[in-house]
Design a protein around this nucleic acid. Sequence first.
DNA 1: ACGGTAGGTGTACGCCGTACACCTGTCAAG
DNA 2: CTTGACAGGTGTACGGCGTACACCTACCGT
Lengths: 235, 235
Amino acid sequence: MADTLHRTPLTRDRILLAAVALADATGIQSLSMRNLAQDLGVVPMALYKHVANKDELLDGMIDVVVGEIDPPRQDTDWKQSVRLRILSARQMLIRHPWAPLAIESRNMATMAVLAYLDSVVATLRAGGFSTDLAHHVMHAMGSRILGFSQELFDASRRAGQTGVAEVDAPTGFPPEIAARFPHLAEISAAASHDDASTVGSGCDDQFEFEFALDLLLDGIDRLRQQGWTSSHRVR
Amino acid sequence: MADTLHRTPLTRDRILLAAVALADATGIQSLSMRNLAQDLGVVPMALYKHVANKDELLDGMIDVVVGEIDPPRQDTDWKQSVRLRILSARQMLIRHPWAPLAIESRNMATMAVLAYLDSVVATLRAGGFSTDLAHHVMHAMGSRILGFSQELFDASRRAGQTGVAEVDAPTGFPPEIAARFPHLAEISAAASHDDASTVGSGCDDQFEFEFALDLLLDGIDRLRQQGWTSSHRVR
DNA sequence: ACGGTAGGTGTACGCCGTACACCTGTCAAG
DNA sequence: CTTGACAGGTGTACGGCGTACACCTACCGT
């Protein structure tokens, strides 16, 4: 039969890229070995000749997307370098909304993630940070260093949706909820009208991300300038 | 038969508490309707008379643990009040390490979570925050407001372990990894020796959490004092 | 006495990950 | 040219999952 001839041979890389594409399109919940195999025109068990199991597949997918983060810029100071790097990570996560959940549910860091973190620490050290302060800074940034928006409920991460999915309630949430949680309603309404550049959700996610990021970076810079150490706090 | 007599009747609350206990003990991964039913001495389908499906069960579990967070203190300023509240939330998450993943994987906030967030906003507003700034602050705090430690890989959250599980490598990570990621090794080593109060992982998680929390709160306080607004940044 | 109903039961279906035996095409060694 | 090892795709099967659906049963208000 001709159908088995000259089919592009299966490869670990081909599998990982297909898995990433499938997760991008349909959400991580509906990524199964069987779906993935079907996408590749192959029987499910064929995948296991190239990846040990589904967990290793997820690790591989994480390495793929982490590899998309821009390399560090050498031509600026630490602050700008770290800032741009993290914003690049955030762009990656916007392309792959399933990644935060996938990364957080794995129980060990992959090599690619470790390499990324290591290079961020390198930038800090080169910028004059003590090992001590650099360590606390990494903790303080936490998963934001990988671009996680840290939102409790950001619509973009949800499974399946294409992301532009015609938001049903542009003003935030339905009135009976607003009545029960007046303070949430108040700040939600404030966000909707005082910035005309936003659309849909009524809240500029990019602005919020940079707001939090700069809040942290500015605070960190202040500590660095003061020569902060954990043994005796400066003030 | 006597076995079916006088068995404590099934209740939504009894189910939720058993589910929380089971997740605490064995991890969220191994929480299945079948396991849970067995724990309750009941057939799996019996649960469906009290919860619509597994997702609703998870929502109920979230409400249970969020309800464990201390109510707001009224006798201090906003900063101390928010700080204590978040530290209480963190204690809750330490008791229920599965909660962050569960909360993040749900696609809508539960009523209890909304109520909690609303009361935090109320504290901010009472502390003199504009709706605008309060809104950005909530975004900046993100899931840390619920006590999420934001660590990329914190051993405590892993499925199953009892938490004290006799850490195998007290110094952090094995030498061949340390060689490949020298900067990570360096800050890891620094954390191990300069603070004798830590044990096991070589890193005081509580300290790291409060470090990041205070970094944010201090930065936020500075903005508040300056009368920061998003339309024109103060400097 | 009796019908309705709340709540526990049993069976079954379609998914999932994946162990294991099998087949087949390729290619180096004899 | 033969052969046999082996890399890589296939088919079948198993146990676990969530849960739809029909059933049974004990209670309770009339």
